[in-house]
Nucleic acid binder design. Structure first.
Lengths: 334, 334
DNA sequence: TTGTATGCGTTATCAA
DNA sequence: TTGATAACGCATACAA
């Protein structure tokens, strides 16, 4: 690999001049510029970004931490963020936190030590205090899908509670009263918020929440499947199931069908997230829209605005979930 | 952020000694070691990996390039690789190539310039020569899902042609003769290999390939949908559809149902990849298993073996696809 | 407009 | 077992 020094030799200019044309900030005469450009070309010179980072303390890359690398939800968020960043010539460095405190911290520290210019964090296991501390360490970052009052300006969120409320309200309005709920891992704030919304809707309709109608799943297809199994085994009656995400809804629908229950004639199902595949299930899944793309882009904008562009634009911090009505919920009022 | 220098001062040892305990390679007396460790703790010292990389020309991280960050296929591959690497304390730096030559090259060069110790590449648009050249540049890398004879030792592949053959053979054995084919973008080698396998199976059964039964999709749900629309519009008869991946199969099934065609009674459908969601579609999708997890782990092993462990283990380079029979294909022999 | 010199935070090669 | 000191490849303040 050619270095800046070899380029400067070949172009017979100083090292600093080469650096100038690389970053084309300082004024360089057209003539010497061309000389340098030519030298760079013949040497097939590529700047060593590590050295650049060390010298300038900037890396032109932002670190992204998501819980898992797999799964439609995370991957489409990463994708949106990466696309937005790359438009500005910035790169994404991505790593996974695995919903584990130690692992999440490790990931964050790794990204920092790689001198990322900013971080976009989808963390779940790390404490609020850790993040508040992170802010004090003067590391620019936003959290996605996690709200912490003390650092509200750094949070970009969906109103998960409202989403849960909307989903169950819809079921209630369609005449359902015995509503099973398949939750995500309840220690995760988004899972518990969605569940709280569910409870609020029930309360509003004066329906008593039955603890036997709650199953705590894992946000994956398998969780939905097991939830249905559980409800069926206990023999409790339910006319609808609200699922905390689309994957579990898909698993639930599959399990219901296997047990001979028609959807939505025997059991209605509603999901959450509005992932792409929910348009292609059978029946097509009614769900709550999570504007992943918008949130991803917003997170990227936050970074770009705060860091590179330097104009402090106002940014949307709280996004509103919306009901998406398709074919998996039946109106049993009639 | 504390530096190695400050640690050395606090521990009143030399800078070199601190470096030694960080990398605990050289011999350091227990006593001074503890002094240094204590100093590191009180200063909350974290090594600057950028500086480490620059000085040592290693980064303890491997670069991964996939076509897209979204999509079940890529994301589960990334996930498997990352997991395997992290087990050895190595980090993954991930970026996207977007199936575009310029973008893929950019991604590769970015990873190199970040001084990744090795690369795992899922590239599509870049030429064979570029990769052969890359090998000459002495950059350790493996390609996934792309076979290049000249650098066979660096390739980890699925036998896509065989997979396409198996899928269509299965359809033929079940009595189907009018088989529509929804391909991926045919300029991609995996898509065209799968299609070639399809043709070989047809030839073996002495079924003439009908060009009107071919639709070139985009590997996404939408492609399957459009494929079905296209076939239906042309009014051509078909009793089965082979899809080049599961997403398109899902789209195709959805479109068929919308047009009132039952699956598999009216039309049989087979997919490719065996993504998780294919177990949860309705009907459950028959497909070809792509051992993504095994391939991801193998790629990671290659890197680990070649780079860090230094024992040259034999590694599987060609993986064999397998038929997964579920409910979406009907036997019409009877 | 260009060049010189210093520093970024480490590793690694010498000596001691 | 330890300590100086020179790289690593580049950015940048200061001089010219």
């Amino acid at each position: 690999m050619a270095t800046i020094y070899q380029v400067s030799e070949l172009a017979s200019v100083s090292l600093a001049t080469v650096s100038r044309v690389i970053n084309n900030n300082s004024l360089v005469s057209e003539k010497t510029k061309n000389k340098v450009l030519a030298a760079m070309k013949t040497l097939d010179y590529r700047p060593n970004t590590v050295a650049q980072s060390l010298a300038s303390n900037r890396s032109n890359s932002v670190g992204i931490l998501v819980s898992e690398l797999h799964g439609s939800f995370y991957s489409s968020m990463m994708s949106d963020i990466e696309l937005a960043l790359r438009e500005f010539g910035k790169h994404a460095i991505i790593t996974a936190g695995h919903s584990d405190e130690k692992s999440e911290k490790e990931g964050v520290e790794f990204l920092i030590s790689r001198s990322c210019d900013a971080l976009i964090l989808h963390v779940e296991a790390v404490s609020d205090d850790y993040l508040i501390d992170l802010k004090k360490r003067n590391i620019p970052f936003v959290t996605v899908n996690r709200y912490i009052p003390e650092i509200a300006a750094n949070c970009i969120c969906l109103d998960n509670e409202l989403g849960g409320y909307i989903a169950t309200s819809f079921l209630l309005k369609q005449g359902h009263r015995e509503i099973a709920y398949i939750a995500g891992p309840l220690w995760k704030t988004d899972a518990s918020d969605r569940y709280k919304g569910h409870l609020r809707a029930l309360a509003e309709f004066q329906v008593k929440a039955n603890p036997r109608l709650l199953y705590e799943g894992n946000f994956q297809e398998e969780g939905g499947q097991k939830g249905v199994q559980y409800f069926l085994e206990t023999g409790i009656f339910f006319s609808a199931i609200a699922c905390a995400n689309d994957e579990m809804a898909a698993g639930a629908m599959s399990a219901l069908r296997e047990k001979g229950r028609d959807i939505p004639d025997d059991v209605s199902v509603i999901g959450f997230d509005n992932l792409i595949f929910s348009r292609y299930t059978y029946p097509k899944l009614s769900t709550i829209n999570y504007p992943i793309s918008a949130i991803g882009k917003t997170a990227a904008s936050w970074v770009l605005n705060n860091l590179y562009i330097n104009r402090k634009e106002d940014i949307q911090h709280l996004f509103t979930p919306e009901l998406v009505v398709r074919d998996s919920v039946k109106n049993i009022n009639e």
